[in-house]
Every structure is written in structure tokens, then in C-alpha cells.
Amino acid sequence: MSPLELVGDSGRIAQELRASRPVASAALRERVAALGPAEPAAPRWTFRRPSGRLVLGLAAAALLASLVAAGLTREPSKPRAEGSHLTVNHDAARAGAQGSTYAPRSSVEKTPAPVSGRAILPATGTLRLQRYQATLRLRVDDVEKLSTATKRAMTLARSLGGYVGEVQYSTHAGKRGGARVVLRVPVGSVQAALTTLIGLGTILQQQTGILDVTRRADRESRQIAKLEKQLETATPQEAPAIRAHLRTLQAKHLRLLRSASLARIVLTLTTPARQAAAPSRFHRTFDDAGGVLLRELQFLLYALVVAGPLLLLGGAGVATARAARRRSDRRLLERA
């Protein structure tokens, strides 16, 4: 081809370049062919962009793992723990607010509710004068058992030498109901009474309290004795007032002795409230799996928030280094 034909015609230049392209020499062919018998290097670990199928598989595996983890870590189904907890003896506090002589704080015994359905019964003092109060909240299965339990509680008080102070009983549509029974039983029989009462249902709550009134009783006794002595030496004008004061004090003392001789037990009985249908094991497992996935997402989000700026900086650094490398390569090739 004449050089003049090439001028201003890229097509012809291209044609000539293709027609006379360099060809590898026989020596080079031999050198390259000789590479074949050599053992290729053992594949090293290299990062390859995972295929979409692999990513889907991993996602499915993660979901499955979450489900399995949720199923394994979830506690076996069991009824909810009863709401037993330490409660303050409000009755004792109320007695104090009403002006009763308070025993030292250490003399007020407070008993926490039982944990596993067994009542803890405080021992009653035999030599001391004590006011004993107990509140029991029990759950019975249905209205029929509610009725039976109420009757048994009332009978129990009478059989122990006490009496029934108050009874409230109500039912709703014959399916749910409740009862409140206030029993007064002799202090000596209070442990027997509580032991029997807790057998009537499942304990939901228990409060017990003992208020020592020995000192108060002693003080009142001394005051009465003093007034009696004053009455003996009193003039006819003073006698009526002293006598009236003495009567009031004697009545008060009698009430104190009476209250210390009979324990007050407030028994509340309830039937279970209508409950929503419990979710199936399948639904619970899915709920738990959802929770696990949510937690994983939270961790991922936290990680991104923490590592995000660093990743951005790293990415920017890598991109800058790449761009610099390309510029360097370009300059190198332009000079070559």
C-alpha cells in the first residue's frame, strides 16, 4: 500500500495494522508451551464477589439459624409465676396513724409472700401481748370452688373459736367471681388457720404483720391502777371525773387485750380472669426469631454508626490511592 493512500484514512491504517500485526516467534511459543507441564501454583484463598445465589443461601441460613436459636433459647412453656412479692404491712401503719402506741420498729415483723406456693407462717409470741394481722389473696379455679372455699373459711374461724367479721361474695355471669372474708381467730390458732386457708387455692399474695403491744398494755394497766388509787382518796367532787376517766381507760384497755387475743385474717379469693388464647409454639418461635433478627439489625446499625465514618475514610483512601495509581500509570505510559 502506498503511504499516500494512508493519509486521512483511518480505515486503511487500521486495515494495514491488522494485516501486518506482530506474530510471536517460534522461540516464544516454545517458552510459553513449556509453562504447561509445570505445576500450577496451589490456589490460595482469594476474595471473590459472592454470587446472588450464595447471598440468598446465606440469608436463608441466617434466618434458619435465628429460628433455631430462638427455639433453643426460649424457656419451655410454663405458667406465669404468681405475683408474690414483699409487701408492707399497711394495717400496722394504719394502726400507728390512728394513734395506737407503736412498738419499736424491730417489733413489727413483716413476712414476704411465699415464692413457691407455701406460706411462711410467723410464730406468735406466747408471753408477749401482740396484735396479729394477716392478709391472704388466693386464686381458685372457678366459681364453684370459690363458694366452697368461702364456706370452708367461715367454718374454720368458728371451729377454732373465732368468728367471721365480714363476708363479701360476688360472681359475674356465673363464670368469674371474688370473695373477701375477714376472720378473727385466737392468736394461738392463727398458724393452724393459715395452714388450712392456704390450702384453699393458689397463693397470689400474702402479708403478715405482728405488732407488739405489751408495753402499751402495761402502761394502760399502770394508769388504771393509778386512777383506782386516786379514786380511793378522791373527794366527792373529784370522784365522778376520775371514775369517768377510769371507765374510758378500762374500756380502751379491754379493747386492746381483745385485739391482742384475736388475730385478724383478711382472706381474698378470686377466680382467674378470662385469658386470651395462648399463642402456639409456632407463633412464639416466630416471634422470638423476629426478636433475634431485630437484635441483629440493631447490632448491625450500631456497628455501621460506629464503623461508618472509618469505612468512609478507608474507602476514600482506597479510591484516592487507586486514582493516584492510575494517574501514575498514565504518566508512565505517556512517557514510555
Binding site: M1, E16, L17, S20, R21, P22, L332
Partner: peptide
């Protein structure tokens, strides 16, 4: 390449890599 015109050969040599 074999058979390339000297002008084209020279022109290619003057191009950058």
C-alpha cells in the same frame, strides 16, 4: 509488524505507549 509501511511504523513509534 512485518510489511508495515515505514511511514506508519515511524508514526507508531512517535505515539506514546
Amino acid at each position: 509488524g512485518e510489511g508495515l509501511s515505514p511511514e506508519l511504523e515511524a508514526a507508531l513509534a512517535r505515539l506514546s505507549a
